[in-house]
Write a protein that binds this DNA or RNA. Structure first.
Lengths: 196, 196
DNA sequence: CCTGAAACGCCTCCGTT
DNA sequence: AACGGAGGCGTTTCAGG
């Protein structure tokens, strides 16, 4: 399995600044040809590092409701469930789950009707307590630094190094630290799929 | 001044899903010609609603350090200063300032060395207390809903309606609720600029 | 995995409505 | 404001190393 090299990082950095920048332009910057850049972007998408191309919107200029930041203390072990419920909600923009079992959410709701939002998308038994704060402003400055590619093994959770494997299942990439983790996961995946 | 119509919202929604989608494609979806879409995207950028085109990255696959969420309670009136300092930091991705004087930041730091980050970019006299949480995972689901265009007057802070004005100063758009706010702001802006 | 040429498709400028 | 056509780029496919 191949990791990220400096060329990949260069491409990502340029696309973070302007995702519509011509590949031929990027090619010149990183010292490649346009087709090579196109291939690498495809690969970055396949790897799952680049999830897609989007807009950076200034939501402070838009009135779709009240922007809020909600801090939810989940019941032990239920943070992931709370996150999953909220991530699907239309009004929700960001969901951060932290290691201490808290889920921090930013959303834009009609009239600070946060309880409705939680009611509709979260099992309230999963919630210990929550706090709502009005967002005055927010900024987003995507950067990359010297990031290395280091996914977690989908089976055992260990960090996957260059010796690892990647498998594409139903369009999504999964990473494994070794062949046995891979086959174990694939078996499990397929049996679940048959059941559904 | 023109606001947002359904066609604008349609264009934004499609670009949120795929910012590299051809304008000719989008044109067909919203019932316009390609040049018309191009014009509207230009206008959306001029208005400042579309800040730019970027990538949606899955940072959980990248190891650039430890992802943290920091909650900072600023001293009274100093939240904006704390936000400004942090927004410039390389490691920082999101900054949310809430109305209660708190600044919530997400960043990726070498080894959870958050105190260094604060030290370098914030006047510690502005900080009352802070708490650091390790980010386990995060999601981003950009949506738009039925958002209306409703900027604040750069001079007096009131919401700007259809009767308002827009002025471009040094490439940035500013909005005003009325002509007198506009001229007052422009005068102030120009005198500040001469002084610098 | 990359390059270079060539075909195709897309974007944007312009004249027009 | 938006359309349609024309010209000029940008992207992608393909053969070759």
């Amino acid at each position: 399995m191949r990791g990220l090299d400096d060329t990949d990082r260069g491409i990502v950095r340029l696309l973070l600044e302007d995702a519509r920048r011509p590949f031929s332009d990027i090619a010149e910057e990183v010292g490649l040809s346009a087709p090579a850049v196109s291939d690498r972007v495809d690969r970055l998408q396949e790897m799952g590092i680049v999830r897609g191309f989007t807009l950076d919107l200034d939501r402070s200029l838009l009135r779709a409701g009240v922007p809020v930041l909600v801090e939810i203390d989940a019941e032990p072990g239920r943070a992931a469930a709370v996150r999953d419920g909220l991530a699907d909600a239309d009004a929700v923009e960001h969901v951060f789950r932290t290691a201490d079992g808290r889920v921090t959410v930013t959303a834009t709701v009609p009239q600070a009707e946060v309880s409705d939002l939680l009611d509709a998308h979260v099992d309230l038994n999963d919630v210990d307590s929550y706090e709502v704060r009005l967002v005055a402003d927010s900024e987003w400055t995507p950067g990359l630094g010297t990031a290395e590619f280091a996914p977690e093994c989908a089976e055992c959770g260990n960090t996957v190094d260059e010796e690892g494997e990647r498998t594409v299942l139903d369009g999504d990439s999964y990473y494994f630290c070794c062949g046995s983790c891979e086959s174990r996961f694939v078996d499990h995946y397929e049996s679940l799929k048959e059941g559904a």
